[in-house]
Design a protein around this nucleic acid. Structure first.
Length: 568
RNA sequence: CGGGGCGUAGCGAAGUUUGGUAUCGCGCACGGUUCGGGACCGUGAGGUCGUAGGUUCAAAUCCUACCGCCCCGACCA
């Protein structure tokens, strides 16, 4: 395609709104344009990349035996109420009423719709197993769209759903998708980590996330460089130290802290390091029993770990009233010291230090010189917090690193989370009705595009892998008004097109520098440069964008060479 | 929702403190000279200065409200 035919509005300067590299480059090279916060248009080049990503996804999904369909984005709110996710979606849901008063949700995901469909058609064991997928726009009113197309309110997702007769079938389907995802991301030129994850709002027990390491990710990986273990920070465990520190001889002192409730308030106001503070968080276990969870001021309680340690069925943060009842003080001044009829759980790190500052269980007061064991007893100690950089690897005991990463894919073994709510059953060979077992599998197409840019760029622009590049080759003339140059380039262009090569032909009458810079920015993997200087010698220059290395070949061999390069 | 920053031509900015003809660079159009890594000269087009109200002889500038955008944080006491 000729440059003048399509729309490639490259910019000389990077719009100041862009911070992430992918955001900057995609704007500068004319791939995307923002319409409003978190809402983007994909210009011709951007659209071509999206299509290439989708093509690869389709190929791998199809060859894994999944079948494509298309579900509606416009979904009656009613089906969301049936699965109980209407409320769980909360503010993220974009919903409205039509003229007759029916409420609709712009689909943020499609479990409800597909499950309804499965209920209608997958009623016999012969219909199972089945994996259906679609590539569709999802709508989520994100609180804060971020980093260009990494987090947007409207995005394209490939979502697949498997339906099986039993758990064993689900495991097979899950493995199948898991491998397909590995192939897809590898073909897309991404290096990635697969980590076990917390299924969260989606439900189910087993889930894995496909993570791409990037400065602009919103998630964290706990990485051990020694034993190479990688886990999601959300669920990473740590090895606990066996040491303990004896208490100090200083006695507890109560001091005034008017209106200073948070760790940040206390630490800045009194110049005390957060690690010398102790946070006491009150939870209610099984809706009845109060629990005080204590961690260092610079740590965060991990509700899941706490729940596991307690063996609690249900655990949630206490509300203001409950806190007041348990501690005798308003929110912000809790301490384990003097608490009665409350189970106290401490994080093991509290045993490694002495002399903490805690609340005083009185309004506007805290206490210092608090020592574990001396001033209060606890029922259990253990790992009840999120890991931090420098914590010890649960597997080998060496130090963990925290690395930011973005989630590009997520697979879940949902089980009967949805089929139960929507009563999706099949008849087995004995005629008995059984719930269909589901899995679901998502890939963020736009985010994958951003991830590829994040991993393939340099100071001049993008370096697309051949598989996803908007064009495989960019042909450009050094001086387009020179007849010989133009004629040679025109001929080459026809040859490349005839050979089925996706070629962008920069036929603009721009100066060489402009064209070279735009070519590097746009990032086609190979550049074919036609210039008078080489032409008189009967040769043409081919440049590899990724390495910036050039080779010179006779005109007649250009096509063959390009084909060879594309094959490799 | 809280904190911070910002809104002036397609892009990047100055001007706002101290009210007085809307300015500069890039890009765009036309003419010319150039032509292998973002050329140069000349001419020109392009603006509700985010929106609405107020103060004033006079508002991009001062006041009030609202809208939008970016970054950080968000039931952790």
């Amino acid at each position: 395609m000729r440059w003048g035919t399509i729309l490639i509005p490259t910019l000389r300067e990077i719009p100041k709104e862009a911070e992430a590299k992918s955001h900057q480059l995609l704007l500068k090279a004319g791939y995307i344009r923002k319409l409003s916060s978190g809402v983007y248009s994909y210009l011709p080049l951007g659209f071509r990349v999206l299509q290439n990503i989708c093509r690869i996804i389709r190929e791998e999904m199809n060859s894994a035996g999944a079948v494509e369909l298309l579900l509606p984005a416009l979904q009656p709110a009613e089906i969301w109420k049936q699965t109980g996710r209407y409320d769980a979606l909360g503010e993220d849901k974009i919903s409205f009423k039509n003229r007759t008063g029916t409420e609709y949700v712009l689909g943020p995901t499609h479990e409800e719709v597909i499950t309804e469909l499965a209920g209608a058609y997958l009623q016999t064991q012969h219909a199972l197993p089945k994996t259906l997928y679609q590539i569709q726009t999802k709508f989520r009113d994100e609180l804060r769209p971020r980093f260009g197309i990494i987090r947007t309110k409207e995005f394209i997702m490939k979502d697949a759903y498997s339906f099986d007769a039993d758990e064993e079938g689900l495991k097979k389907s899950y493995q199948n998708m898991y491998h397909a995802y590995q192939k897809i991301l590898t073909r897309l030129g991404l290096s990635f980590d697969i980590v076990t994850a917390d299924p969260g709002i989606m439900g189910g027990k087993v889930s894995h996330e496909f993570m791409v390491r990037s400065e602009y990710g919103e998630d964290h990986l706990a990485v051990c460089e020694t034993c190479k273990m990688v886990t999601s920070r959300d669920i990473a465990a740590r090895k606990l130290s066996k040491q303990t520190t004896p208490p100090t001889s200083s006695k507890i002192e109560i001091f005034d802290t008017p209106n200073l409730k948070t760790i940040h308030d206390i630490s800045t106001h009194f110049h005390i390091a957060p690690r010398k503070l102790m946070k006491t968080i009150i939870y209610m276990m099984n809706d009845r029993d109060p629990v005080a969870a204590c961690v260092r001021g610079d740590h965060e309680v991990h509700e899941g770990k706490l729940r596991n340690l307690l063996g609690a069925k249900q655990l949630c943060l206490a509300n203001a009233k409950e806190i007041e009842k348990v501690t005798g003080a308003p929110l912000g001044f809790a301490s384990p010291v003097g608490l009665r009829d409350v189970k106290i759980i401490i994080d093991a790190d509290l045993l490694l230090d002495q002399d903490f500052v805690t609340g005083a269980n009185q309004k506007d007061k805290h206490m210092k010189h608090v020592n574990v064991g001396r001033d209060f007893n606890y029922s259990q100690s253990g790992d009840i917090r999120f890991v931090q950089e420098g914590d010890l690897c649960a597997q080998c005991g060496n130090k963990l690193l925290l690395i930011t990463a973005m989630e590009v894919g997520h697979v879940f073994q949902l089980g009967t989370r949805y089929t139960e709510c929507l009563n999706v059953k099949y008849k087995d060979s004995s005629g008995a009705e059984k719930l269909v077992i589901m899995g679901c599998y998502g890939l963020g197409v736009n985010r994958i595009m951003a991830a590829i840019v994040e991993q393939h760029n340099d100071s001049k622009g993008m370096k697309w892998p051949v598989a996803v590049a908007p064009f495989q080759v960019e042909l450009l003339t050094v001086n387009h008004s020179h007849d010989g140059t133009r004629e040679a380039a025109d001929q080459l262009y026809s040859k490349l097109i005839e050979a089925g090569i996706d070629c962008l032909y920069d036929d603009r009458e721009e100066r060489a520098g402009v064209k070279f810079n735009d070519a590097d920015l746009v990032g086609a993997p190979f550049h074919v440069v036609v210039g008078e200087r080489n032409l008189v010698k009967g040769v043409i220059e081919i440049k590899k964008r990724a390495s910036q290395e050039s080779l010179v070949v006779p005109i007649s061999e250009v096509l063959g060479k390009v084909q060879e390069l594309l094959r490799d």
